[in-house]
Each structure stands twice: as structure tokens, then as C-alpha cells.
Design a protein around this nucleic acid. Structure first.
Lengths: 121, 121
DNA sequence: TTTGTTTGTAACCATTCTGTTAAATAAAAG
DNA sequence: CTTTTATTTAACAGAATGGTTACAAACAAA
């Protein structure tokens, strides 16, 4: 048994795997939204949205604020930062095209990986 | 017949949602690997790995090279670049909030978007 | 051609999603 | 206290996912 399982928080990747949940995050980029407002923007029932929101919340991708019965949700992007960290080493492969090479350079400096194919700032 | 339902048009996000598939990608960072070599590294059967590889290939995350019966797989990072592009706007969020402020200050010292509750309707 | 090696596909099964409708919870309003 | 508003939770059906074993296909070697 290799048990190469938990490389990092599984729930984050599961959370963003679903297109509806990604769309919810996209909507929240415009700012905080109430639960009903979110549901209105999708062709599925409110309970379905409530559960999607629950998954996102559990994955730490959004924040909840309560006011009376209403619940407002906003982005908590630290969870996505985890995905970003996972992506980081792969970024070396297409690094030449990115405009923001700073983090790549830093990453490469500490982890002496393969060929340092010409990177320039 | 039986409509091979295992491998349909799946998004990149679905492909990387599975921890085994992410681990396969991680293994391939070390360089090209044969199908059998990949399977050896995991506690699941070869057919299971073959299918995971198929999903990754379908998602455009890896490339296949054939030599006799053998098949070698290597990273095709353009697919992950797609994830990176999706992540891009969110990166501004966590960057502006609390992570790696040094980089932020240097890179985009002016765009300190703290975005206060914008209800756009 | 026959045999052995390597790998993918088919069929099957258990488990996990995702969506629905109905009921429950919580707080304000009347 | 009862009703209205806002939202989640419960229960369930149907589809998708991921694992297994058995079989087929492709190719090299004998």
C-alpha cells in the first residue's frame, strides 16, 4: 500500500470540480451576495444551491455573515490559494508565458528541480 | 455497445479533482513514465490506473508516446495552464488580503483592491 | 505461427454526487 | 401568538465515479 492519498485538502479540489460551484464563486467576485440572490442566478432549486454553498463553505472557500434570517456569502480565497500552491511546480512548464514570474523564480531558488529553462524577468 | 461512460468529455477540473490523478501528475513531474511504471506506484489495479490516465489524457493534461506495445506518458502542462487562468482573478483576492504581501507590494502596489460590498444587480 | 509481454476495454458492483420535493428551523412582522 | 419570510436539512431517485476481475488487442520474440 502506497497510500499516496492526502497530498492536500481533498475537499478544495472537489469543491471547484463542479461547474455550478465555480460559477457561484465567480458570482461572488462581484461582492457579497445573499443566499437567495445566489439561487436566483442559477437554474436549480434553492436547496441545491444551499448544498453547493455548504460544500464551498466547508472547503473554506467562502465566508458567511448573518443578519436576521438572511445569510450573506462572500469569497474566502485562502482555500484557492491552496490550489495555487499545488499548481506552483507545474507552472514551471509554461512559465515563459506568464507575466508574473516572481514566485516561480523564488520557488526554483529553493527547490533545485530539473533544468532551469531560461526564465527571465 | 455499452456506451463507454467512463470516459466522457470531462473538464480539467474533474480530472484534477481525484487525488490519484493528481498524484499521477506529480509522478510525471519527474519525467516521462511508462504505463506500468505508473501503476506500480499506486495501490490500485492497472486497469484503474489506465482509466485515470485516460481521463487525464482526455482532459489534455498529458501526452502519450508509443513504442511497440509500451506507452509512455508525460505532462502536457497546457491543460493546467487553463486552471491557472481560471485562478488568476482570485489570486488578486488572497494576495491583496494577507499572503505574501511583499510580492504584492512589488508587483502591484497600486491595485490594493479591498472591494467593499459591491451589490451589483 | 505461436507464445509471452504490455496495456487498454468491458462488465459489474458499491459508493458518492446532484437534483427534487417536503419538512424543519429561525427570526421578523402583524 | 400566529403568520410570513428566508434558508437549511431530510429523504429519496437517478446518474456518475472509482474500484475490481476477466477479456481483448497490439506487438516482439521464438
Amino acid at each position: 500500500m502506497v497510500t499516496n492519498k492526502a497530498i492536500l485538502n481533498r475537499s478544495t479540489f472537489d469543491a471547484i470540480a463542479d461547474p455550478t460551484r465555480r460559477a457561484i464563486l465567480d458570482q461572488l467576485m462581484g461582492g457579497e451576495l445573499g443566499a437567495g440572490e445566489i439561487a436566483e442566478r442559477f437554474p436549480v432549486s434553492r436547496p441545491a444551491i444551499a448544498r453547493h454553498v455548504g460544500v464551498l463553505k466547508k472547503a473554506g472557500l467562502l465566508r458567511e455573515r448573518r443578519d436576521a434570517q438572511k445569510r450573506f456569502y462572500s469569497l474566502e480565497p485562502r482555500g484557492l490559494a491552496e490550489v495555487d500552491r499545488w499548481l506552483q511546480p507545474y507552472r514551471l512548464y509554461w512559465a515563459a508565458r506568464l507575466t508574473d514570474l516572481k514566485t516561480i523564480v523564488e520557488e526554483r531558488a529553493k527547490t533545485r528541480t530539473e533544468n532551469p529553462a531560461g526564465d527571465k524577468k
